[in-house]
């Protein structure tokens, strides 16, 4: 197979799936009525953004940015390592995403306790 075409297919696949995840999450946030599903949509957007970050930092043929005796030899021979900065940022983003999900779920539980439903179209009152 032509390597340029192959690279194009791979890039469309990776970026496309990441953007697809973001769009699926956005659709769930906008359309779904159940609050738990909205929180799940936020998590899916998170996953898409993380995948996009890692894909931008990837270098073809690169190894993970972890050195060993053999790894230093390989780097000295010219083997590339992937960019470590996006990976470190995604580690931060995952933790923040967890915090957001936890607090959002606790608000959903609180709403459910008060209104006995977690569907936003069944909650009529603005104050609670």
């Amino acid at each position: 197979m032509d390597p340029i075409l192959y690279n194009k297919i791979i890039s469309v696949g990776v970026y496309g799936s990441a953007i697809g995840l973001i769009l699926i999450g956005l659709y769930a946030v906008l359309v779904k009525k159940h609050l738990t599903k909205i929180v799940i949509g936020l998590s899916i957007i998170d996953a898409g953004v993380h995948l996009l970050f890692i894909a931008v930092g990837f270098i073809k043929g690169g190894t993970a940015p972890i050195f060993s005796e053999k790894g230093i030899e390989l780097v000295n021979q010219g083997t590339a390592m992937v960019d470590p900065v996006p990976q470190a940022l995604v580690l931060t983003a995952i933790v923040i995403g967890f915090g957001v999900t936890a607090v959002a779920l606790s608000l959903v539980i609180r709403l459910y306790r008060h209104h006995h439903t977690a569907r936003i179209d069944h909650i009529k009152s603005l104050k609670w």
Partner: peptide, 30 residues
């Protein structure tokens, strides 16, 4: 409206990332 919004967001993201070559080294000479 929601579909339009999704199409716009998807198109903007796809257009941006189609200019970034996947797997290309962007760190320069180490």
């Amino acid at each position: 409206f929601i579909l339009l919004l999704l199409v716009v967001v998807g198109w903007v993201l796809a257009d941006t990332f189609s200019q970034i070559n996947f797997g290309e080294s962007r760190m320069g000479d180490i």
